[in-house]
Simulated scan of single mutants.
Amino acid sequence: MLYLDGTYLKLRREDVANEVVYLVVGVTEEGYREILGFYVGGQESANGWRNILLDLYSRGLEEVLLGVFDGLAGLEEAMKAVYPKADVQRCVVHKVRNALHAVRKKDQPAVAQDFKPIYQANTYEEAKNRFKEFKENWQKRYPKVVATWEKDLDVLLTFLSYPSTIRPMIYTTNIIERTMKEIKKRTKTMNSLPNEKAAEKIVYLQAIDYNERWATRRLRGFGEAYEALQEMFKQRYSGP
C-alpha cells in the first residue's frame, strides 16, 4: 500500500518561495511502514507524482494493492497509469473537512454527524444507502457538497472492500500526514532553507530516523488481515 502526500517548504532562490516536498510511505501486507521516496522542488502536480511513481516502479516496486491520497486533480490518473491494477482510496477525513468548510457554521455539527454513518458503514451497500439518506437531508441546502461526494463516492468507499481490521488505517492519509508534520516542525525554526540540497538533507535524515523506528513497529490490524491481503495480491498479480 502506498500513501502519497505533499507539503511546502520555504526555499531561498531569487526570493523566498514555497516549493513542494513529495513523500511516499509504503506499508507491507505484514503492516510495516517505510518511507520509500521523496522529492523536493517545484509546485505539486499530477505529472510530478507520476514521475515519482515511475521512479518507484523502476526501482522494483511493481505490485501495489492500494494508493491512499488526497484529492489533487490528476493524481488518480497518475496512479492508474503506473499501477493499473491498484485500487485508489481518497482520504475521507479530508473530504469531510472540505465539505464542512462549504456549509454554514450552524449546520456543521449536523452535517458532520450525518457523514459518520457513511464512512462507518460495514459494507459498501450500507454506505451507499447512508449516502442516499444524507443526500435527501442536504441536497436542497448544499447541492454542491452533495454533488462532489456523489461524484467521488466510489473512491471514498474503496476501503470497505478490504479487511475490517485495517480499514481505520486506510480510509485516511493520517499515517503520512503525521510524518509530514514532523518534517515541517524540523524546518519551522529555519524560516527558509538556502536551496534544495539543504531541504533534501533534512527530509533524508528525517526519513532515516522514521524508517529505523518503524522497522520493528507493526501497524494495528495487519496481523489479522495478512492472509486476506496475500490472497488479494495473488488474485490481482498472479494471473495473466
Rank of each mutant, 00 (worst) to 15 (best):
residue 202 I to H: 13
residue 231 E to Q: 10
residue 186 R to Q: 10
residue 181 K to S: 12
residue 235 Q to M: 02
residue 146 V to P: 11
residue 230 Q to I: 08
residue 196 E to W: 13
residue 209 D to C: 11
residue 182 E to C: 02
residue 140 K to S: 03
residue 223 G to R: 13
residue 177 E to T: 09
residue 134 F to D: 09
residue 193 L to M: 05
residue 140 K to F: 02
residue 158 T to H: 03
residue 198 A to M: 11
residue 214 W to K: 00
residue 223 G to V: 09
residue 194 P to S: 01
residue 151 K to G: 15
residue 165 T to P: 09
residue 227 E to C: 06
residue 162 Y to H: 01
residue 207 A to Y: 04
residue 130 R to S: 10
residue 143 P to V: 12
residue 217 R to F: 06
residue 134 F to V: 02
residue 169 M to S: 15
residue 159 F to S: 05
residue 163 P to G: 08
residue 171 Y to S: 00
residue 198 A to L: 07
residue 178 R to A: 14
residue 173 T to Y: 07
residue 202 I to R: 10
residue 167 R to I: 01
residue 230 Q to N: 11
residue 174 N to G: 05
residue 172 T to I: 08
residue 154 D to C: 12
residue 223 G to W: 14
residue 187 T to I: 05
residue 182 E to I: 05
residue 218 R to I: 02
residue 181 K to H: 08
residue 149 W to A: 03
residue 190 M to K: 15
residue 145 V to W: 05
residue 139 Q to W: 12
residue 198 A to D: 09
residue 217 R to C: 04
residue 225 A to Y: 07
residue 236 R to N: 02
residue 238 S to R: 11
residue 135 K to L: 05
residue 147 A to G: 06
residue 184 K to M: 06
residue 218 R to G: 00
residue 193 L to E: 03
residue 222 F to A: 06
residue 154 D to R: 13
residue 186 R to E: 08
residue 147 A to W: 02
residue 229 L to F: 06
residue 191 N to M: 13
residue 192 S to K: 03
residue 199 A to I: 01
residue 237 Y to M: 06
residue 163 P to L: 06
residue 132 K to D: 03
residue 172 T to D: 05
residue 195 N to M: 08
residue 180 M to D: 09
residue 136 E to P: 12
residue 234 K to E: 12
residue 155 V to L: 03
residue 164 S to T: 07
residue 212 E to L: 11
residue 144 K to D: 05
residue 225 A to P: 10
residue 199 A to C: 05
residue 189 T to V: 07
residue 163 P to F: 10
residue 219 L to I: 14
residue 218 R to F: 00
residue 155 V to I: 01
residue 219 L to P: 15
residue 141 R to A: 11
residue 161 S to Q: 12
residue 200 E to M: 11
residue 147 A to Y: 02
residue 184 K to S: 08
residue 205 L to H: 15
residue 143 P to K: 15
residue 224 E to R: 10
residue 138 W to P: 13
